[in-house]
């Protein structure tokens, strides 16, 4: 297996230009939303809104302003599939359409997926969606085709500020820790890394440097695998099935005993009348 590869996204230098979104769309030949007739959201400067089956990169604008707009801040983050080391989508996929590649990334094979959408419900980050053109689940492939040819993923190639960095995970972690130390030395005390170590789903192969709590960026603080519920849930159900079986048997036995008692009573009464 090749060395694990991935993205380190430093949100502190993202300028929200959305070049990554455009490069991703162009390379992966993803169609425009609504045939290109996209209305403005009217409530944000972000008009591409969300990750979807035809938008595998999305630059989030977190716009925090006071009501009179006298103060505020912008946070920007280029969001993408996290290529989790322990991936919920891969775990639940019943068809084997979702695979782990030799680069430790997670890819959906469109020719195998049958659109059951279990992966959408399983992803703790809300990344996966159905592509309306293929009717299959789709998301970032970390440009698997480009990586196989030794190329840098399109988004990282296009990023003008090096907010999106691509490379071996071990190197990216060193860059991330150095950058974090630099920011903290400059007094940016809220800076933190997200998904760089094994504490989140065994590690995220697309991890982040954030300038606030993960929730501010729409990221869960403690994402988990969907399989955590299988054993307790199945155990309770199995116990319930046994209890129902016992309940049914007790009822049947009671019915039989009542019938036998009634028959015995009738016989006794019959014997009594004969004797009389």
């Amino acid at each position: 297996m090749a060395e694990p590869m991935g993205f380190f996204t430093d949100t502190s230098v993202c300028i929200g230009c959305k070049a990554c979104e455009v490069a991703c769309k162009a390379w992966n030949q993803l169609p425009a939303r609504n045939g290109g007739k996209v209305p403005l959201t009217g409530q944000s400067y972000d008009n591409t809104v969300e990750l979807s089956g035809i938008q595998w990169r999305h630059v989030k604008f977190i716009e925090q302003f006071s009501p009179d707009r006298s103060s505020g801040r912008w946070l920007m983050m280029s969001d993408v599939c996290k290529h989790c080391v322990q991936a919920g989508c891969l775990e639940v996929c019943p068809t084997g359409a979702i695979i782990r590649t030799e680069f430790d990334t997670v890819v959906i094979q469109s020719d195998v997926c049958n659109g059951c959408r279990a992966c959408i419900a399983a992803c703790p980050f809300g990344v996966i969606d159905i592509n309306p053109e293929t009717n299959t689940a789709m998301k970032c492939t970390l440009c698997y085709d480009r990586m196989q040819a030794g190329m840098v993923p399109a988004c990282a190639q296009a990023c003008p500020t090096h907010s999106i960095q691509f490379g071996p995970i071990s190197e990216l972690r060193q860059h991330a820790e150095a950058r974090l130390a630099q920011l903290q030395a400059q007094g940016v005390s809220q800076a933190r890394l997200y998904g760089h170590d094994e504490s989140i789903l065994g590690g995220l192969n697309s991890f982040y440097l954030l300038l606030d709590e993960p929730e501010v960026y729409g990221l869960p603080s403690n994402p988990q695998l969907p399989s955590r519920n299988v054993a307790p849930s199945a155990g309770l159900s199995a116990a319930g099935a046994v209890a129902l079986g016992v309940l049914g048997l007790v009822g049947l036995r009671k019915q039989r005993m009542d019938k036998l008692a009634a028959e015995a009573r009738e016989q006794q009464e019959g014997d009594g009348s004969h004797a009389g």
Binding site: T95, G96, V112, I130
Partner: peptide, 15 residues
């Protein structure tokens, strides 16, 4: 309910 109902058998057999 499948988005690609013709591939329902992928649930049981690897394609």
């Amino acid at each position: 309910d499948l988005k690609r109902p013709e591939r329902f058998w992928h649930m049981l057999i690897q394609s």
